[in-house]
Design a protein around this nucleic acid. Sequence first.
DNA 1: CTCTCGATTAGCT
DNA 2: GCTAATCGAGAGA
Length: 200
Amino acid sequence: MGKKIGLAAYLIDDPVQGALFFLGKKLAVKDPKGNIAGIIMETEAYGRAEDKACHGYGNRLTPRNKIIFQQGGITYVYFCYGMHHLLNFVLGPEGVPMAVLIRGVIITEGKELVKPRRKGIPEHQWADGPGKVTKTMGITLADNGISLIGERIWVEESGLEVPDSEIERTPRIGVDYAEEWAKKPLRFVWKKAINRLCLL
DNA sequence: CTCTCGATTAGCT
DNA sequence: GCTAATCGAGAGA
């Protein structure tokens, strides 16, 4: 097991730096039957009050989004489109809405636990989307607002180096309503992760 | 209370 | 490329 990522990394005061930092790290979830883990290969940066795509836009506080105003180091899980749960890591100091959306993971551990719930789906498509990440890893609203330095969900060093040259930047997905913020390149994809993992 | 729409996905054309 | 599925959050009355 790799070294668990500590609180300091989550207190980073910049969602872009955070989104980049977590690429190539290992996301782990403790399931009653064993751990499920995988390498994070796609993220999106959301944040600060001026980001029109962020749930904390304009610092408006609601029962749902209050989590992202808390100090970094906890999860922000919310329900979307009536059927999907989306996982974020809350970042930054308390009072500033900032988070990284985990959009893609390559499952490396606990595959035998995943198989039954992703029946008939090829392995490389198990968690190649934000809704699929939570479904594959068994993350639900019950995991909203919990510590990322805890025993249920955490992030570890993977030992993988992610060169800047292998990170693709694109606009974020599904935020067309966010006007000028819809176009900003705040989505980060490490496409070569799959190749790299084949060598392990 | 009512209405709109979403940080998506799967399946079909 | 298009859209149904599906329901709660958020805004406004």
